[in-house]
Design a protein around this nucleic acid. Structure first.
Lengths: 301, 301
DNA sequence: CTGATAATGTAATTAAACTACATTTTTGAT
DNA sequence: ATCAAAAATGTAGTTTAATTACATTATCAG
């Protein structure tokens, strides 16, 4: 029983496509051929039989099953179900042949699938206890400041303030390192500073958290594990997110960070309960005369 | 052969979970029991057999198969593969029992799944021709302005400018209605204004597009179909996105809009090719001395 | 070159899906 | 209420497909 089979038994999902890509070079000659056939059209493989594959490839049926075993599956049936599940998670896996037809990727597939992939990774990494701790810190703070620099993190910080003010949190956001520092030095024990950075390396953020911490404020970071920013944070929501190699495609990381902010915001909203309903009602009321419509729309959102 | 079976034959995916929820009331008594067992734990159903289900439910094996047929599947094998694919698309379907255990939703599951669902809807609605037209307009514009109001759309506008400047597009963003109006009235035939709004109703945006259009600029909107904003736009990227009823959870719409901006940006990046690589290289170079690291990170992103 | 190991295939077995037909239940008409 | 027809359901048998056991072939190391 290999480690993967143990994992499969324990109910932990194997990312079968990733596994396939990792082990393909170490497969035997016949199994490599099976792999090539599968990778040529992943979707087709979920709709076919052992004998269909063995005939198409020119290997025996047990070789196909052995291939599945090489990937840590119990057998072909297990392999197919896993493949089907993986197939749908990442849209970019669908019919890679159609991709090769034109010289460049279908942009929406590339962007959407990369985001879905990264969201999945993030969801698996997100530590519910840490999120809970962060939400509690924000909920009980006198004021909360969100800091980001560099454009991507900047808008996450701004959006965070925009989220939390709706729930009655005294929230501000800054992306100017000078303002961050200045504000941080006015903070105290009842206050929270949240720094947002994909890399965890901007000196402005590290400095500002250090300053706020020195005056007794609680410091939070949404960032990469082990980065310098984590060293000056009381609570770290850490995410180690893969970066897609396509340089023309903007990073999915900032969108994932926004999603994490939404998780936090939702939790704080629940903590505050009816109190929040009233502030949300007021916000909606303040805007409804502008649009003259009452349907469920993200007005002012 | 029913319409659904014809669709399955033609390779069009049936959303099996949606279908199940739609037809459950019209199923026969025994098939209803099978449905209840399946819906109780969708994931479990992908891992079991016809006989497993028939025993657990107390019906015959052919009844289980008939159930699958009622959903438009060829048989149980077809049903299982479809379920597996559907299961993974929407994270919210995973183990609904675990949700019911606590009185309130698992926040990260709620937020992530809602976003993935909404992304799926958006990807299906996104018209590649319109996106192509929009990308071309942006690519050939002298300058591009992004306008949004209300917080959510504001950051999308800002982020858009942040995306496009990297590709050498003269891009600005404003969320102050006065500035929008003022800038729009300086625009001309070589310029593009992009308005971003989930509802398509803010008067500021409508006015600014009208003004820009009157001076010959090309107007683009990323908004809801049929809304007033579409009436003053030359090119409309329209998305009719569902809103989740959970009022404490921020809308996924703005994240989807950001993703659409990424699609546009990627396309413009490709159109510009090598020229863009140089500007990206410069940007990275300008920042690398700050972080003293060269690994693939979204620096300044 | 030889022996051991790994890879692969053939043939048989097993498991699971599925069909055909019988039985039971439900429905609608009188 | 009764009866016939239709629908639902189950039993038993058949077929399909996955899998195992064992034989054969290929490869590697000494």
């Amino acid at each position: 029983m290999t480690e993967e089979q143990a994992a499969a038994k324990a109910g932990r999902p194997i990312d079968i496509i990733l596994k396939l890509r990792n082990v393909v070079d170490s497969l035997s000659a016949s199994e490599k051929q099976v792999a090539a056939f599968i990778l040529d059209d992943l979707e087709r493989a979920t709709l076919t039989t052992v004998s269909g594959i063995s005939e198409a490839v020119g290997v025996s049926e047990p070789t196909v099953i052995r291939f599945c075993r090489s990937l840590g599956c119990e057998g072909f049936k297990d392999f197919k179900i896993r493949l089907a599940r993986n197939l749908a998670v990442s849209l970019q896996y669908i019919n890679p042949k159609a991709r090769a037809a034109n010289d460049r990727p279908a942009f929406s597939d590339l962007v959407f699938s990369s985001l879905v992939d990264t969201l999945k990774v993030a969801r698996d990494q997100l530590d519910a206890e840490i999120v809970d701790k962060a939400a509690k810190a924000i909920d009980s703070a006198r004021q909360v400041a969100f800091y980001g620099v560099g454009g991507g993190s900047s808008i996450v910080a701004q959006d965070a303030a925009n989220r939390f003010f709706r729930f009655g949190v005294m929230a501000t956001a800054h992306s100017d390192g000078y303002l961050q520092r200045m504000q941080a030095s006015t903070f105290g024990e009842e206050d929270v500073v949240v720094a947002i950075s994909a890399t965890g390396r901007p000196q402005e953020l590290i400095d500002s958290l250090t300053i706020a911490k020195q005056y007794g404020a609680t410091t939070l970071a949404l960032t990469k594990p082990g980065s310098p920013l984590t060293k000056v944070s009381d609570v770290v929501i850490e995410l180690n997110l893969p970066e897609h190699p396509e340089i023309f495609k903007p990073t999915a990381t900032r969108l994932v960070f926004l999603c994490v902010i939404d998780v936090l915001a939702t939790q704080v909203g629940y903590m505050r309960g009816e109190e929040v309903r009233e502030t949300l009602r007021r916000i909606r009321s303040s805007l409804s005369s502008l649009h003259e419509t009452i349907d469920p729309q993200p007005i002012g959102d």
